[in-house]
């Protein structure tokens, strides 16, 4: 479960953590991805696992378009840039939820039959549900890819440089908007991947994103902004804490443990565990 939070958080880690842009619509990106894989399944009978790359590609385009149409202008605001970003993306989230309600109705949907749904696998006597296991593996792969991407490729360096100093980057011939649009696309594609896998074992409804978004923010902040590894570690810690809390407290209070651990961590390390900003 922790790695799933990690998977949702990895896209956010890129947008929120590495580019330092607030995205309050992250949960809604997840929601859209889940609906996409639901409809691909319902109309074309494509298993969510197969359609995951399609969903990720669609979300990539969506993320880049959102950046180019909205976020670009929000970042240009001379005053209150932080609040403008928060409320622009929050407004977007409300619109997306409204659109989902309009087109998909508020009904709960689920994918009844899929390759992975409901199956378990036994590893050394421990039974693990398959979808979660696949989610965990994809999550590790996604983190590894992102880590490599940020630290080993020109694009990754360009991204970090653009956050640090957009003016100087422009001088050496990097187009800030192209870099960030690509970053947003990539972040959205990652959450698309998460959505495609989660569609297998979660109900899909217009507000589904909200319940995961806050945990994703906490995960990223817990690990520390600006650190891919931090978000990964954050995801694992959040999962473990949730599991432990669920043993001690009633299930309805399981998030309290996660929140308490976040507070504890930032009180001791105000920049999260591995944060650099």
């Amino acid at each position: 479960m922790g790695l799933l939070y990690g998977l949702i958080a990895v896209g956010l880690a890129l947008i929120f953590g590495l580019m330092d842009v607030t995205n309050f619509a992250h949960g809604e990106f997840l929601m859209i991805a889940m609906y996409l894989s639901f409809f691909l399944f319902a109309f074309f009978a494509i298993d969510p696992l197969l359609s995951a790359p399609l969903v990720a590609a669609a979300l990539f385009i969506f993320g880049a378009v959102v950046y180019l149409l909205l976020v670009r202008f929000a970042m240009r605001a001379k005053a209150n840039a932080g609040m403008v970003q928060i409320f622009t993306t929050f407004g977007l989230a409300i619109v997306m939820r409204g659109l989902a309600q309009y087109f998909f109705t508020p009904d709960y949907r689920s994918i009844p039959q899929s390759w992975l749904g409901g199956k378990t696998i036994s590893i050394g006597g421990i039974f693990l549900p398959e979808p979660q296991l696949v989610g965990a593996l994809v999550s590790i792969a996604a983190f590894a890819a992102l880590y490599f991407f940020i630290h080993r490729t020109d694009f990754g360096r360009a991204l970090e440089a653009t956050r640090e100093d957009p003016g100087a980057v422009a001088l050496v011939g990097i187009d800030k908007n192209r870099v960030f649009a690509f970053g947003w696309g990539l972040g959205a594609a990652l959450v698309g991947l998460a959505g495609a896998i989660m569609a297998v074992f979660f109900y899909i409804y217009p507000d589904v994103g909200a319940s995961f978004a806050l945990i994703a923010y906490v995960t990223v902040a817990l690990g520390g902004f600006g650190s891919v590894f931090g978000a990964f570690a954050g995801g694992i810690i959040v999962g473990l804490v949730e599991a432990v809390t669920a043993l001690v407290l009633p299930p309805s209070l399981k998030s309290v443990g996660i929140y308490a651990v976040y507070l504890l961590v930032v009180f001791i390390r105000p920049r999260g565990l591995f944060g650099s900003i």
């Binding site: 001379k78 409320f87 929050f90 407004g91 939820r97 409204g98 309009y102 508020p106």
Partner: peptide, 24 residues
Amino acid sequence: SGRGVDLIVYGALIVAISLALPRG
């Protein structure tokens, strides 16, 4: 209608105002 049109209008207005008038 219960179909979220109010949410769409409301959200779009928030986006529009925050983008157009960052100082409020």
